[in-house]
Design a protein around this nucleic acid. Structure first.
Lengths: 217, 217
DNA sequence: CGGTTAATTGAACGCATTCAACACGAGTGG
DNA sequence: CCACTCGTGTTGAATGCGTTCAATTAACCG
């Protein structure tokens, strides 16, 4: 796989299949409890990870305590294929979860250096796209749009029925660059407008999918 | 170069030397005037670029006109090695500038697929790191800190003397997720605190480097 | 049940924006 | 050389959005 040569350009890259395959076959399965740390910020990035079950977040803490959530990872997603030799963000289990892990050096012997690099290349492209999309969200959306876009992404392209919110309000807030109160307020507002409806605080029903999709942009 | 195997981890990746070398030797030199478009948003990403002189910005326009600046590129920087088959951001000349350009397919024959992919890998790692840093800036800094951090980055690690601001206030604002007025106010504020001083609106002198570096974090 | 954490809601504040006016500099023509 | 214009940058005043602080309610779990 090389950049720019794919016959069918698409806006979002799929997860690199070859690497996912290798991790799922040879990876060491690990189990983490809620809020357990999978790896620390600044830790050496020696392993590649794949979410088997549960949800993972990457987080970065500021000097003065402010926290930023980099991304959420769901079953099937790869994470930990960092940009540098050390992790910029820590990774933590949002829910109890199972994660498969392989040493990069091990993958290298299994599928060869070139294959590994290509797979990582694909993964990085995906990460970069998500990061840029996130940058735009943070830079030029207001609170209402941020929360709407988040829900739209979470509900997925087939926005119908409902969706679970595995993460708490604080995680959503730190992901969107808002406070927990503002997130709550926007959710309440969207509910009062019948765009969504909460079955419980972690379970949301989509009442007007077309309204939510308007936020996706 | 493979991820995780480098003996000396460093926080910021250098530009991929091999690729830069190839572009500078075989690239087609092009000249652009102020505000000229180098490539458009959504255009196929078939080329790799290198700034020879001048400054380049990548920009992305929203449906309702809001603009976001992705990154600024200075002489020696590579750009256009996008995450997808199509450019997420357009590239424009901030100042009159010279840019070298090569087709990816041409590079492939010159240095081989593996080399190319490795070089792009390095470049992407760099881009991802910058994007994440930018995300954090947008997500959890206030106006004062944003402007301070911008100046600190622009002045460079050896924060001393002064720096030129090749971009206008609007570009700075769209990069930082602020309005032009707020940027101007923060600059005035920093000047009134004797952290910086403006020789002209595009030329800034660093009066207290240690104060600026505090923003870098 | 009580006890604890998470989430919602209210009220007041403050930071950044918005709208508006003004200042500055570069370029052009009288 | 000055007057004029246009683009760019600065400054002021008022508004509003999101935050902050505080109190209440809901969910979770022993």
């Amino acid at each position: 796989m090389t950049i720019g040569a794919s016959p069918e350009p698409r806006s979002v890259e799929p997860a690199p299949a070859a690497l996912a395959e290798v991790i799922s076959r040879f990876g060491v399965m690990m189990t983490f409890g809620r809020n357990a740390e999978i790896y620390a910020q600044e830790a050496p990035a020696e392993h590649l990870f794949r979410v088997v079950s549960g949800v993972v977040r990457t987080a970065s803490c500021d000097l003065d305590g402010r926290r930023h959530i980099g991304e959420f990872y769901y079953p099937g997603d790869l994470f930990g294929l960092e940009a540098a030799a050390r992790h910029q963000y820590s990774a933590e289990a949002i829910t109890a979860c199972q994660v498969q892990m392989v040493r990069q050096s091990a993958v290298r012997t299994l599928i060869g250096v070139e294959e590994l690099d290509l797979a990582i290349l694909g993964g990085l492209r995906r990460e970069l796209q998500k990061a840029r999309e996130h940058m735009r969200l943070l830079g030029l959306r207001n609170a209402r749009e941020k929360v709407g876009a988040f829900l739209a992404a979470l509900a997925g392209p087939g926005v119908a029925g409902g969706a679970d919110l595995p993460m708490g309000r604080q995680d959503m807030a730190d992901y969107l660059g808002l406070t927990i109160e503002t997130v709550s307020r926007m959710l309440s507002q969207l509910q009062s407008e019948d765009v969504i409806e909460f079955a419980s605080s972690r379970r949301v029903l989509i009442r007007r999918p077309e309204m939510l999709e308007a936020f996706a942009a």
